[in-house]
Nucleic acid binder design. Structure first.
Lengths: 230, 230
DNA sequence: GTCTATATCGGGATAGAC
DNA sequence: GTCTATCCCGATATAGAC
């Protein structure tokens, strides 16, 4: 007997069936009955394993994070050298994300549609997704810490992972809306915006900009403080 | 007989009932049956006037825009003088918005939850809400055009209304999540960020920053182009 | 055109038997 | 853990009152 119990296998089968159907016909048109049928279980069983249809999405998020962890590690390890720049590291992180989510891009919109609902635990800002958020931010923290070509101002360093995470969320949102062939538009936007960000971080070190920097930090502290209780 | 026909009155009564219930118990728990009952009409009537429960939200958006138009006009007219600054004008626009939406802040999250779903016509980025978006952007365009204290670089001017609209969406999102008493945190964030934006716009005029400016404009053109087909 | 009453369906979610 | 039966509600449809 494998270490995965029969129950875990059933759970995985249901999730697989759900993702297949979401991919094939989208999130909303897919019924829990169809998911259960495809997984070869009863409707009740499906609900035994997943509290709700949205819970399947949450499970997908978690599975995605687990699946991406080794890829992220590999991507960063490959670029551990002193010669690799900040831009390349961040681009590598984003590439892992986009590659993983690409097959499900069409229904990712349905998954992220709760972004603006603070009550919903599926929101990327909710406390339920805190763990995922922290993981993601840790990758960006590494990208900042390990890059030698961009020395962000000391005061910025603590905030950069969160800011980059927010930037990433924006890019993903743009990507979901992007109907250009192969989402070429998003790729362009990623490249250009990353170059700009890198340039701004370099510029930010000039002593002349110290007062401006202080104001920005002040703003970031304020903004982050307000979301603590969310 | 008043100019508003009986039919319009019924429609308004149903929408009022819906908004009352949304305020009292939230969007999801409120049933169409309850809305119809509160409005004193049959379920069929409710569906006669509103295609779906979400259609009620759309109607609320439209009502909100109509109701805010005179307030926006007044707010800008009051500040038509040459002495009024850019910051004050933008702050006034935001104040009208926040004041209007305040009573429904608790369930605005539910209304905006489709923001990330490109297929959904309720999304603030969808073509169904294009008219509302354009109206909002026109106010920001006026704020930019009528203010003499901030002369944004020529190349920026076309993009500023859109950027400010996006900024506004971000602030509203923050406000929805803001659980500080009286949403004091959002007010602070608005003030500080507006001051920063104003400062940046002034700074942007320096000739030295011309290449940076070009890159930013390039990025804005790219980003806006990609959303045309959304 | 405006509205009621009522029946029906599809699908998310639950209860309880086994 | 799994299934069947059931409930609730959004949405549709229809027949008819006024």
């Amino acid at each position: 007997m494998r270490p995965t119990s029969k129950s875990e296998a059933t759970r995985a089968r249901i999730l697989d069936a759900a993702l297949d159907l979401f991919r094939l016909q989208g999130f909303e048109p897919t019924t829990m009955r169809a998911i259960a049928a495809r997984a070869g279980v009863s409707l009740g069983s499906a609900y035994y394993y997943f509290e709700s249809k949205e819970d399947l999405v949450m499970a997908y998020y978690e599975r995605a994070m687990e699946a991406m962890t080794p890829r992220m590690e590999a991507a960063l390890a490959e670029r551990a050298g002193i010669k690799t720049g900040f831009e390349e590291r961040v681009a590598a992180i984003m590439a892992v994300k986009f590659d993983y989510f690409r097959p499900n891009r069409a229904f990712l919109g349905a998954l992220l549609r709760h972004a603006a609902d603070p009550e919903n635990h599926l929101s990327p800002f909710s406390s339920s997704t805190l763990h995922i958020r922290e993981c993601d931010q840790a990758y960006f923290a590494r990208a900042v810490a390990e890059s030698r070509d961009v020395r962000a101002p000391e005061e910025f360093v603590v905030h950069l992972p969160r800011l980059l995470w927010l930037y990433q969320m924006g890019l993903i949102l743009y990507w979901i809306y992007d109907r250009s062939p192969g989402q070429q538009q998003t790729r362009l936007l990623l490249e250009k915006s990353l170059t700009l960000i890198t340039g701004l971080l370099r510029l930010a070190r000039f002593a002349l900009l110290k007062p401006l920097r202080s104001k920005i930090v002040e703003l970031m502290v304020l903004a982050e403080g307000g979301l603590d209780h969310a």
